[in-house]
Simulated scan of single mutants.
Amino acid sequence: MKDLEKEQFFVSFIKENKKRFYLLAYSYVKNEQDALDIIQDSIHKALKSLYKVKDLQSIKSWFYKIVIRTAIDFLRKNKKMYVMEDVFLENNLPPYNNSYENFDLKKSLDELPLKYKEVIILRYFEDIKIEDVANILGLNINTVKSRLYKALKILKLNLENEEDL
């Protein structure tokens, strides 16, 4: 496939899935502007190396991998703690509908270690197959499965503890 065709396919792919990518980046950084910056950086990185992609079917997992790595790099570079008042936070939620509508679930997800959180988000919120999650994260399929199991167990315990309060 020619580079121009790949580029056109990639641009339409990004346009169709921009909200999903934004929510994925937002789930890492919890800040609208930072999430938008991550998406912009990810698209820039992807366009620079688009010629390396041989199969268009792999673009989805390839770009998810770029977004996740860019978000993690961003977090490493910008280890900041944001302190916000509840009123300020409520008025500055992201403009898109967040997939994590259940507050207790969102809170429990936020408390998960990153290695568990990312497999849950990719598998259940982004509806990506386990094999593709493994590919995106550069992990063995069995590692992804065990992290999913452990994450679900932790989430279940956290949600049960919230109900008891």
Rank of each mutant, 00 (worst) to 15 (best):
L139Q: 14
N91R: 14
G138V: 01
V119L: 06
A25W: 04
I130H: 08
L36W: 05
E90P: 05
S99E: 14
D55P: 12
N158W: 06
K18V: 06
F10A: 11
Y22H: 02
L75H: 12
L139D: 13
E90V: 04
K52N: 10
E101R: 00
K30Y: 07
A134N: 13
N97D: 09
E111V: 05
D73Y: 12
N91G: 15
K45R: 06
E163W: 12
K106T: 02
L152G: 00
S146Y: 00
E163L: 12
D73G: 13
V11G: 08
K150M: 07
M1R: 08
R20W: 00
Y116W: 10
L56A: 13
F74D: 11
E101F: 03
D110G: 04
K156W: 09
A134W: 15
Y51F: 08
S42R: 01
K150W: 01
N140K: 14
I120S: 06
K117A: 07
P94C: 06
A71K: 05
I59Y: 11
L137T: 09
V29I: 11
E131T: 15
Y100K: 00
F88E: 15
L4E: 00
K153Y: 14
I136C: 07
Y28F: 15
V83S: 11
A46P: 03
K150N: 10
N91S: 15
V87G: 12
I130A: 12
P94E: 02
N102T: 01
K19G: 02
N98V: 02
L89R: 07
I154D: 14
Y51M: 03
D164V: 15
L109F: 05
E162F: 07
L148S: 06
L75I: 15
L47C: 09
K117L: 12
I128S: 07
R76N: 15
E5F: 02
V87Y: 14
L159R: 01
L112W: 12
S49K: 10
R123E: 11
N140I: 07
N158K: 05
L47Q: 08
I141Y: 14
I130N: 08
K77S: 15
K145S: 09
N17K: 03
D55I: 04
D127H: 13
L148H: 03
E16N: 06
L157W: 10
V83K: 08
I66H: 03
L93E: 08
L105Y: 08
Q8Y: 04
Q8L: 09
P94D: 03
Y116C: 09
H44K: 08
Y28A: 06
T143E: 07
F103K: 01
K30A: 02
F10I: 05
Y100V: 06
F63E: 01
V29L: 11
I68A: 06
F103Q: 05
K6Q: 01
Y124N: 13
V87I: 11
F13H: 09
K106M: 04
S42F: 01
K80D: 12
E5A: 03
L114I: 11
L105C: 03
Q57Y: 15
L148A: 03
K79R: 10
D86F: 14
V144W: 09
E85D: 15
I128F: 12
A46N: 00
M81W: 11
K2H: 03
I136G: 06
L50G: 00
V83E: 13
L155W: 10
K65L: 00
F103H: 00
A25K: 00
L165M: 14
E131Y: 13
K107E: 06
S49F: 04
N135I: 03
I38T: 04
K115W: 01
S61M: 02
L112I: 09
